[in-house]
Structure formats: structure tokens, C-alpha cells
């Protein structure tokens, strides 16, 4: 469980996140939405421990996240950040195998189980056929599937995603979302997800956090947050809600 209390975050003198307090329950898909510049990515980076809050604290299963070493953190949570750019020609298999690093000591050879997990992760994301190809030669969507496979191979109880499916085609977006749901239900994994497609949010979330200008606009069950008036006000767009099926965005 995540417990975020009174978190403020400054970059220079600019206050990016203002006095956030909320918690994320074990075993739910927690989606963060909000307009550009509302602080979604910054919030996610605080949750990963990469940024330190200027004030307030973030507890991960009761432990202050600042107290955890990178190794300990990497065994608790796996992250896909926006725009990962790998410059060097690692094979896809090597990249997914990097997900096992948190569980291995320096220079320890991957065991049979490590291999099995990597192959399972690549099969789940339908990337096993790429195992020998270089990550630098893949398209954006294919790369994102490899990153998802690496996250699965990390086998962490928390998965944090920052628009991790933005380059995938609709088929794989839905497949990946279903895969996450499967993990949540079967293994009790907790997923924190930044998504732009409001339609997807409705279908693949439990709780939704609507951020605006670094503050919580709405937070709660998806049905309460994904209401016509909330979305229209925050995003300044027109939407039509469809009962039980999310909403239709009107240009």
C-alpha cells in the first residue's frame, strides 16, 4: 500500500505539486489523469523514489521511500517511464533479462528460473519472436512491448507506468491492459498508470485520480471521477457519457 501524506514538490521556486494526500490500495489499478503539465509524471516519479518530495512523506508498505536503497526499491516496484531511449544495440532478450537484475547479485549467472520468467514475460507480450533482434531496430510500439515484458520479468508487487502504451496499436493496448488486469487479479499486483485515453481509463481502472494544476481535482472510484462535468471542466472539452461504457469525446 502507498500512503502519500502532505506532499509538496518544488522545482526551483515553482510549486509543481501542492499538498497531496491520498493512498493507493493493494491490488487495484490506480489511474492518474489530467491535462498537460498537471504534474502526473512528477507525481509518478515521486512514487518511484526518483524524485524526493520537498516536504511530506511517501510510505510504501509502511516504509519511508527515501530510506530504501535502489536495490530494495527495484524488488518492490517496476517502472516504465515516458520516452525510454536505448542508445546501444542490446538484443531484446538482454533487455528483458535486465528485469531480473534486482534479484541477482553482481555477476551472478541467471538461473533456469530466471530464464523461464523472461520467456514467460516475452510470450505474454507477444515479443518472443523478437528475442534475437536489436532493441535499437524496433519500432516504438514494439519497443514498448519489450519494456512491458521487462516489467513483467521483474516480478514486483507494484507496477508504475507513465503512458507506457502510447505508441502501441489499439490491439496491443487492449491486450496489455487486460494483461495488467490479469496480474492484479491473479497475483494481487498493484498498478499505477498514467493514461491519456479517457475511454481506456473507464474500462481498465479501479480508482482514478484527476490532477489539475498540481492539485487533486477529484479522486475516487472510476464511476465517480469519470463524470461528464468533471472531465469537461478539467480538460475543457465536450464529452457525451454513455451509460456503463465510459464516454465519447466530441471534437
Amino acid at each position: 500500500m502507498y500512503k502519500i501524506s502532505n506532499v509538496n514538490f518544488f522545482i526551483g521556486k515553482r510549486l509543481i505539486l501542492k499538498d497531496l494526500s491520498f493512498s493507493i490500495r493493494q491490488g487495484e489499478i490506480f489511474t492518474i489523469i489530467g491535462p498537460n503539465g498537471s504534474g502526473k509524471t512528477t507525481l509518478l516519479k515521486l512514487l518511484t523514489g526518483f524524485y524526493k518530495p520537498s516536504s511530506g512523506e511517501i510510505l510504501l508498505d509502511g516504509i519511508d521511500i527515501r530510506m530504501m536503497t535502489p536495490k530494495a526499491l527495484s524488488q518492490k516496484l517496476s517502472v516504465i517511464s515516458q520516452n525510454v531511449n536505448i542508445q546501444f544495440p542490446f538484443t531484446c532478450f538482454e533487455v528483458v533479462m535486465m528485469g531480473r537484475n534486482p534479484k541477482l547479485a553482481n555477476n551472478q549467472k541467471p538461473s533456469k528460473r530466471d530464464m523461464d520468467v523472461v520467456i514467460w514475460a516475452m510470450e505474454k507480450t507477444n515479443t518472443l519472436q523478437y528475442w534475437d533482434r536489436l532493441i535499437t531496430e524496433l519500432s516504438g510500439g514494439e519497443k514498448q512491448r519489450i519494456m512491458l515484458a521487462r516489467t513483467l520479468a521483474q516480478e514486483t508487487p507494484y507496477i508504475l507506468l507513465d503512458e507506457a502504451f502510447s505508441d502501441m496499436d489499439m490491439h496491443y493496448v487492449i491486450k496489455s491492459m487486460k494483461l495488467l488486469r490479469e496480474l492484479v487479479e491473479q497475483k494481487g499486483v498493484t498498478v499505477v498508470n498514467i493514461v491519456h485515453d479517457l475511454n481506456l481509463v473507464y474500462h481498465f481502472s479501479d480508482s482514478v485520480l484527476l490532477l489539475n494544476g498540481g492539485k487533486i481535482e477529484r479522486l475516487g472510484h472510476k464511476v465517480e471521477v469519470m463524470k461528464k462535468e468533471n472531465i469537461e471542466k478539467t480538460f475543457k472539452i465536450r464529452v457525451e457519457s454513455i451509460k456503463g461504457r465510459g464516454m465519447l469525446i466530441l471534437p
Binding site: 523514489g49 524488488q75 516496484l77 535486465m98 537484475n101 553482481n106
Partner: peptide, 24 residues
Amino acid sequence: TYFANSLNLLSLGDEEARFLGVDP
């Protein structure tokens, strides 16, 4: 050479290295 595995992760960037258990 002994620590080369961390260098592999470091070559993906600080964030990636950290998320995979290496202190960048």
C-alpha cells in the same frame, strides 16, 4: 569488467538504472 553489468544498466540512463536496482 567486474562491475560491467551495472554499466549496462547505466547506459540506459539514470532512471532506468535506478529502477533496475543500480545506484547511478
